[in-house]
Simulated scan of single mutants.
Amino acid sequence: MSAFDNVPFLVTGASGHLGRIAVEELLARGATTIIAGTRDPSKLADLSAKGVELRKLDFNDPASLPAAFAGVERVLLVSTDGVGARRAQHEAAIAAAKQAGVRHLVYTSAPAARPNADAGLNPEHFWTEIALAASGLGFTILRNHMYAENNLADAAHVIASGQLFGLIGDRGTAYVTRADAARTAAGALLSAEGDSIEDVTGPAAVTNEQRAALYADISGKPVAVVPLMPADLKAGMVAAGIPEGFAEVLVAFQRDAVSGHHGVVTDVVERYTGRKPQALGDFLRANKAALAG
């Protein structure tokens, strides 16, 4: 039993990858009143059959928010995919939660959230954290580190080319799987009290050199790291067809790895889930087929 098993929970973005796993974890851990918020409730009919209440919740439709938050005591606010609009979306959700009488809100943020103009996606998370801290709600901010799944986007290309491009001075990234992050969020909903900011990480910081070695070991093909300066890395991304704005975001992630922001390692996953987080190597081996392209 957890401290809040029997109170009404709302999970936003419940049809997304993280939100859905969080709902399933709440079910598995005995939560009795779970509300899944989503733009399209028809996508979650199977969860409805398991006793989950479905509510329409569209961050682009502020009028949908009061009904979605009504009667809820604890909320998991999964950061939206509306880059550029997220701050306004999140602030509207926090305001609706406060108006509805929500007591505690768990938010999925990012490591080293800060307002700096060169901080990639971090400013939107930073201002959300500020709004949440000023709201008067109890809060748990979960700064999810880089998802292990992000490696699958280009791992096949890296292996095929034999080259992994990264910034000079990389100090490692504590990759965490989306499933571990989602289960952690569910655990925080069930038990977190007071106000806290926590880094959600994998079990170790993995450098580009170590990641290249994992790719080589799993694929049987040599992979070498090519260290670059930020301007050269961005130029290479743009030349490869990545939009300039997104390339800048990707470089910002790597700058944070150089500065050490992504190398933090904590016990937060194990504390909220009772299980150790999956290591990047184990995750990549479990997804070996994706590494072949």
Results as ranks from 00 to 15, higher is better:
172 G>S: 01
232 D>I: 05
261 H>A: 15
79 S>Q: 04
117 A>Q: 15
204 A>F: 01
198 E>Q: 13
160 A>D: 11
4 F>P: 02
217 D>F: 11
286 A>V: 03
154 D>K: 15
51 G>H: 02
243 P>M: 09
110 A>N: 13
228 L>Q: 09
7 V>Y: 02
51 G>F: 03
230 P>M: 13
209 E>H: 12
282 D>P: 02
18 L>G: 08
161 S>L: 15
205 A>P: 04
75 V>T: 01
67 A>T: 12
112 A>C: 06
261 H>V: 13
219 S>V: 02
229 M>K: 14
217 D>E: 14
108 T>L: 06
155 A>V: 15
86 R>Y: 12
133 A>N: 01
140 T>W: 04
26 L>I: 00
82 G>D: 09
120 G>N: 08
223 V>N: 15
119 A>M: 08
180 D>L: 10
91 E>F: 14
199 D>W: 06
94 I>N: 04
287 N>H: 13
166 G>Y: 10
166 G>H: 08
290 A>Q: 11
273 T>E: 05
148 A>K: 10
75 V>M: 02
197 I>W: 10
4 F>Y: 12
11 V>M: 00
226 V>W: 09
210 Q>C: 05
201 T>I: 08
228 L>S: 01
264 V>G: 05
224 A>P: 00
92 A>G: 13
258 V>D: 11
285 R>P: 07
130 I>A: 14
215 Y>P: 08
135 S>I: 15
276 K>Y: 06
98 K>E: 12
232 D>Y: 01
146 M>P: 06
